[in-house]
Amino acid sequence: MTSEEMTRKVKELSGQNPYLCMQCGLCSASCTGIGVMDLLPRQVMRFLQLGKEEILKNRSIWMCTTCLICTARCPRGIDIARVMEALRTINLRKGNDILAPEDVPAELLAEIPQMALTSGFRKLSA
C-alpha cells in the first residue's frame, strides 16, 4: 500500500481528517494505552500527516481499548478512536491480526465474561 493509498483509506474508513491535528498531545496524555503503546495517539496522527506507511505495522493500534477519551478531549474535534480503528481495519481486511483463540489462557477463558471475547475478537482478530 502506497502512502497516498493509506491516507485515502484512513480518511474514508474513519471519516476523519488527520491534517486537522495540531499536535497538542492531549490525546496521548489521556490515553488508556500509556505505558504499553510504543507510539501514542499524537504520534500516530503525525505519522499519518507525514504519510508514513509504517504506522500500519505499529503495535499501538492493537493496544487501543476504544475508550473514546481521546475523542472526547481532542480540541480539534477529531474522532481519534475512529482513526485507530481505520488502521486496524486496513490490517484486519488483509488478514493481519493480533489475537488468536489459542492465545487466550484456559484459566482466563474459564472466568472471563462473554462480551470480553466478542468485543476483543471483533477488534483484534481478522
Binding site: T32, G35, C67, L108
Partner: peptide
C-alpha cells in the same frame, strides 16, 4: 470514574489492564 479499565485488552495485554 470514566477512565477505562483496559476492557477487552485483558485478552491481549495483561500489563495494560493491570496498570489501569
Amino acid at each position: 470514574k470514566t477512565k477505562c479499565c483496559g476492557s477487552y485488552q485483558v485478552l491481549n495485554n495483561y500489563d495494560l489492564v493491570a496498570g489501569r
